[in-house]
Simulated scan of single mutants.
Amino acid sequence: MASETEKTQALLQSCSTQSLLSSLGLGIFCLVADRLLQFSIIQQNNWLRALSDNAVHGVIGMWSWAIVIGIKKKTDLREIFLAGFLASVIDVDHFLLARSLSLKAALTLPRRPFLHCSTVIPAVVLTLKCTMHLFKLKDSWCFLPWMVFISWTSHHIRDGLRHGLWICPFGKTPPLPLWLYVVSTASLPHICSLVMYLTGTRQVMSSKHGIHIDV
């Protein structure tokens, strides 16, 4: 179990000047990227619109996880790229619901696909934690549930700007205001770090990052 000193170091890292500036940069990126995606040259081309939109999801996922762990070693980049992949891969459910590889079919669905239901996130996170406990993967893969949480939540928040959040079985919220989208996305890594600290889980998140974080 991590000592109180180690836990305090982890908490201070999540609130450091560097991480706060990174969050500010993330918020600015969200504003700029979504403005750029509104250009007609992008909106009029389905492939360009889909790829650029998915790429922004991926960058936000990578940026968010980088704030959580910091980048101290080259091996940290693997986790960051994995977070970006997880933030982007959700959109595969568009093709699953369309039952087609056609981009046009995936973009003109009669309803939102299942991975875009926000209730799925805690269900998947809890399932992952139980699975890792069952197969004794708590130490080597203890970061994965938190990575899924932050990557998928950032995706849902960004989609919520246009479509609102779909929270089964309660229905959908109105589209999120721009300010709430930016503030939520920028603060998400710090909320995640704080919850990691407060939960006090006995597993060491990662000695790779130079500190011990309770997950």
Rank of each mutant, 00 (worst) to 15 (best):
L82Q: 04
K138C: 05
Q18G: 03
L180W: 08
L194Y: 13
T201Y: 15
T119A: 09
L12P: 03
L48S: 10
M132W: 13
T5K: 14
L109I: 11
I157M: 07
A105Y: 00
H209D: 15
G27T: 02
S184R: 09
V32Q: 05
Q18R: 13
T131M: 13
S22M: 09
D53R: 10
F29A: 04
L86H: 03
N45K: 06
D159T: 03
I60N: 01
F135W: 14
F95Y: 10
K208I: 12
S88R: 04
A33R: 04
H156K: 10
L109Y: 02
L107S: 11
G164I: 06
F85P: 01
I167W: 09
G164D: 09
F39I: 04
Q38R: 13
K172V: 05
S14V: 04
V120A: 12
S64T: 11
P174T: 05
D91N: 14
S193E: 06
S187Q: 09
E6T: 03
L96R: 05
T173Y: 08
S19R: 15
W166N: 12
I28H: 00
W47N: 12
R158V: 13
L26T: 04
M1K: 13
I71W: 03
S207A: 15
R35A: 08
D76A: 01
R111Y: 11
K208C: 03
L178D: 09
F81I: 02
I90G: 03
W65T: 01
V125F: 12
T119R: 04
H155K: 05
A98M: 03
T173Q: 09
H116Y: 12
D214H: 12
F114I: 10
A98G: 00
A50D: 10
F135H: 14
V125Q: 11
H133M: 11
V92T: 09
F170I: 03
S14R: 02
S52M: 11
A98N: 02
L96C: 03
W179P: 00
P122W: 04
S16G: 06
K136T: 08
W146H: 10
V125G: 09
D93A: 01
K74T: 00
V89H: 02
A33L: 06
Q44N: 15
I211G: 00
L144E: 03
S16Y: 03
A2D: 10
P177Y: 10
R78M: 01
A33F: 07
A83H: 10
L36W: 12
T8W: 05
P113T: 07
T8V: 09
F81Q: 00
L144V: 08
D53G: 12
L11C: 05
I67D: 02
G160K: 01
V68L: 09
Q43E: 14
V215Q: 10
T185G: 05
H163W: 13
K73Q: 07
E6N: 08
L97R: 15
L176A: 02
W146P: 09
L134E: 13
T153G: 01
L11R: 15
L128S: 02
T5M: 11
W47S: 08
V92D: 01
T173G: 11
P189T: 07
L176M: 12
T131Q: 06
Q43W: 08
I121M: 08
G200C: 12
K208R: 14
L82T: 15
L109A: 04
H133R: 15
E79R: 05
S22K: 14
K172Q: 11
M132N: 11
T5Y: 12
N54Q: 09
W141E: 05
L20S: 07
F29L: 07
T108K: 06
T173M: 05
M62Q: 02
I69K: 13
